[in-house]
């Protein structure tokens, strides 16, 4: 356990000491700030219109109108930022031969993988802290319903965790940072397109199957503020699967 934490903190420290991380966070803040204020403004306009038309007021909900859009933008950004965070974790180590150090230290393969994974999750947590500042700021002048908001954030964080597991696996496959970034980003986009295939499935069985493996199906509940155990099981098993594959790749270095 201490080995896992040693690696996790080392990775997290090298993220937050790296200027690239700050550039990424600054750009993220710029995009989120611009888009969040637009959403908020639109919501107030809608509110003002609803005042003039009594009866429509019930439909305007800040959770749906502003925060869900905010999280969707965050999700879109994550598709491209998570690979940037995970790409160096294995690819760079292999390229710079520092991976030799880890393989000759008294560490088990799963300790290396989980350590690095936790390091990436900590870095992602910084992104979520930044994203959470926006609803927090809104709370200064509006009364919010915190529970569904937090669950929606948790949902997106779980998605980010799934991305991180997939992308860490991609990173372990290649010595090239570029290849690991591109395969990761494509994989992240691909999991969203699984839901598109649902419409074209012939049988009910196939439809159910595709629905269950599609991210968007499972996130829809969380994002509205309901926690379903089947979604949680889906997220954790996806994370578990990719971490397991990753562990196998690391282990294979020892007998290749």
């Amino acid at each position: 356990m201490s080995n896992i934490l040693t690696i996790a903190f080392k990775e997290f420290k090298s993220f937050i000491k790296n200027p690239t991380f700050y550039i990424m966070m600054t750009l993220l803040t710029l995009i989120l700030s611009a888009l969040f204020t637009m959403q908020l403004q639109r919501f107030f306009q809608m509110g003002a219109m609803a005042m003039m038309q009594p009866g429509a007021a019930g439909q305007a909900n800040i959770h749906y109108a502003v925060f869900l859009n905010h999280l969707q933008i965050l999700n879109l950004i994550l598709i491209f930022i998570v690979p940037a965070i995970t790409m160096r974790l294995f690819s760079e180590e292999k390229k710079l031969r520092t991976f030799d150090l880890l393989l000759t230290c008294p560490l088990k393969s799963y300790e290396i993988v989980i350590g690095k994974y936790i390091g990436a999750l900590l870095a992602l947590f910084v992104i979520f802290l930044i994203a959470f500042l926006y609803p927090l700021g809104t709370a200064l002048f509006a009364k919010l319903n915190w529970a569904p908001l937090l669950i929606a954030f948790l949902g997106i964080y779980l998605i980010a965790a799934v991305y991180a597991a997939m992308n860490l696996f991609c990173s372990s496959l290649s010595e090239s940072i570029l290849i690991s970034y591109v395969t990761s980003a494509i994989l992240n986009i691909a999991v969203w397109f699984v839901s598109q295939a649902v419409e074209f499935a012939d049988t009910q069985w196939a439809r159910n199957f595709l629905e269950h493996i599609s991210l968007s199906f499972h996130i829809s509940g969380l994002i509205e503020g309901t926690i379903r155990t089947n979604s949680l099981i889906y997220f954790f098993s996806a994370i578990g699967l990719f971490l397991f594959l990753n562990e196998r790749v690391v282990e294979s270095h020892r007998w290749r």
Partner: peptide, 18 residues
């Protein structure tokens, strides 16, 4: 391997420094 690695200090051809 874990016991062996505890007892070994290894310098590869390229120093594994971050």
């Amino acid at each position: 391997p874990i016991e062996v690695k505890k007892r070994i200090g290894y310098l590869p051809e390229t120093p594994p420094v971050y």
